[in-house]
Design a protein around this nucleic acid. Structure first.
Lengths: 206, 206
DNA sequence: GTCTATACGCAGATAGAC
DNA sequence: GTCTATCTGCGTATAGAC
């Protein structure tokens, strides 16, 4: 893995991402990855000793990228609601760019939970703070009403992530009428999620 | 598949459900299914000629069960909001009983979309009406404000389904603090989704 | 219907030439 | 670093006895 190898290695990684994201660890085929990288199987094993290691590389990258997005930027100058809005924009933009990401991570975790326990420790959390912590902070400062932060966090994630997760279903059902949740549709989604947050953090007092 | 075989056949089906739901078509192993059914591989092939056929049986069952839940009961005596509330209760109860169902269906569709196109046709839709149709009806009758029915439908599904989809992540992260979205937690979830619907169908006028 | 034993093919992995 | 050719093992599937 020296500098001059970057081209081949990157082609492998790109092909591996596509294969593993779509078919998972068991479903992906080393032959396909080699084909799509424009090389042969032997060379795959030269770069990454075996399938497991190649998968781990892809999965680890996805995992840390994913969890980076699940943090609120520590810009304490902004009001809490604004920080949450920014968080929502980030997540939707991110999932829009990598629509298979959530599915990939959730599916692989569900197949092999132990694997995940170790990995989640290594993820650096120095770029921001968790949404739940932010909500708690807001309640302490009386900036937002008393809510159940776990439920609100879950609701926000649900509204943002599910449309991308479920898009295979909706694409299939509405393949003729062609409803798409990209481009302009993302704007609708963002608006709707923000309305929900507005509602939860302004009107509601439970 | 005569009457007296029901026991063995059902044991196979039960084991196959567990295996395919967790590991998917490629990840599931016929040996495991046989073991968990308390029989041997040869007998599996006696009942279901091959893996594909066994998978199809399980998948078709899951698919029609799933889409049955995605219908609103045609009880026109109730106000629309009540019908939606019932719909929400149904979905959450259903997903609570079969937490892996959404993941299974979405994942298998994403791996093989063509397969799905054929199957979705065969599903009987005579038990109710789609949520979008209901929302449109409500707007026509001026019973609810003007909303984008696709977005609202997506929002409701998101709020209901995502917690179950993503539970592998949250179970893993909070395995120590042990936040669970079953039992009493389902009540919180239902309440939150209904609040959202209330908000969308009462206060909001966009 | 149920079993044991076995065939077969595919996909991951390695050897070794260039 | 990249290839062709080959090995190996595992998982699906079948043959055939009971």
């Amino acid at each position: 893995m020296q500098l001059k190898d970057i081209n081949t290695e990157e082609k492998i990684i790109e092909a591996a991402k596509n294969a593993f994201m779509k078919y998972g660890l068991y479903g992906a085929r080393m032959q396909d990855i080699a084909d799509n990288a424009g090389i042969n199987k032997a060379l795959l094993h030269y770069y990454f000793r075996n399938k497991e290691k190649l998968f781990d590389y892809v999965f680890d990258g996805a995992l840390s990228k994913y969890f980076e997005q699940m943090l609120v930027f520590s810009d304490t100058s902004l009001p809490i609601k604004e920080r949450i809005f920014k968080y929502i924009d980030n997540i939707i933009d991110f999932l829009s760019e990598y629509p298979q990401m959530s599915m990939f991570i959730i599916k692989e975790i569900s197949v092999n939970e132990e694997l995940f326990y170790e990995k989640v420790q290594n993820i650096k959390k120095d770029k921001g703070v968790h949404l739940i912590a932010l909500l708690n902070e807001g309640m302490e400062k009386n900036e937002i009403p008393m809510i159940d932060p776990t439920v609100v966090m879950m609701n926000i994630h649900s509204l943002c992530a599910y449309p991308f997760l479920a898009s295979p279903i909706f694409k299939a059902i509405e393949k003729s009428s062609g409803v798409s949740f990209h481009d302009e549709e993302n704007q609708k989604l963002k608006k709707s999620v923000k309305e929900f947050v507005d509602f939860k953090l302004t009107l509601n007092k439970n």
